[in-house]
Design a protein around this nucleic acid. Structure first.
Lengths: 127, 127
DNA sequence: TTAAAATATTCCCTTGACGGAATATACCAC
DNA sequence: GTGGTATATTCCGTCAAGGGAATATTTTAA
């Protein structure tokens, strides 16, 4: 993994938010939409970009696509994901995103792979 | 300093080399040209870009322009400059650049501000 | 089979990044 | 002044990035 690929991935606020969310575990697209309160197309395009850079992988599970940080995760990325949400230099929006994520993960039933469960009514759109 | 500005600065190999060099102290443009073996225009443009991002400052001294990391240096930048030249994940070209820099700084006479000294014949172009 | 949800892709447009070549500017030596 | 060195800018071309709107694809539900 070239260092500049990682930095390119991190050089846009929405992508930072996505990578930050994925650092806590896999997530489907509609969860991201809900947490980040952003349109589907915009998120999908950034995910395609991150996939092109080799930072993210995707796998369809039932009706959804679950995204993950591509392993093995480069030490540079690991370190930066730690820094950007750190208390000193970190962004509070990123920590808020993680709280929302945590709240959603406990609110809906999820299996151990973090894919939404049960298949239909447990997803983020069940409100 | 917005995190994405720092990552934009780091998201190109030539800029990584420049920031790596400046992490050891101020440097004039012609030293960079010599160390990086690159054309004047290309380096000058990248320096302009880094200045626009707020990562680098420049100050004319006599016939030269001396570049510095803009202070106070963000912890994110500090940490990444450490990582990218680290032994494990680091790039050996970056360590080579630093050796060349060190060699030049001792070869030519320099004052404590790292501006080339004496004014004319001590610069990198005296070969 | 039809409808709806989740995701991806395409088209159009604007802006920005990057290279190469040429030119401009600032400073110094003489 | 002239000339030379160091640096910046401009012009031109190409290509990538990013937004908005519309549409396509995959899958499930009924």
């Amino acid at each position: 993994m070239k260092a500049e690929h990682i930095y390119k991935g991190l050089s846009e606020p929405d992508r930072i938010r996505i990578l930050n969310l994925l650092s806590e575990g896999p997530l489907c697209g509609c969860f991201m939409q809900e947490i980040m309160d952003m349109g589907q197309v915009k998120i999908s395009k950034q995910l395609a970009y991150l996939r092109k850079l080799g930072l993210v992988t995707s796998a369809r599970e039932a009706n959804w696509v679950v995204y993950r940080l591509a392993g093995p995760i480069d030490p540079i990325l690991v370190e930066n994901l730690k820094i950007i949400r750190g208390q000193e230099a970190g962004d509070s929006e990123l920590r808020l995103d993680l709280s929302k994520r945590q709240e959603m993960m406990t609110r809906v039933a999820c299996n151990e792979k973090a894919a939404p469960e049960p298949v239909r009514k447990g997803c983020c759109c069940e409100k």
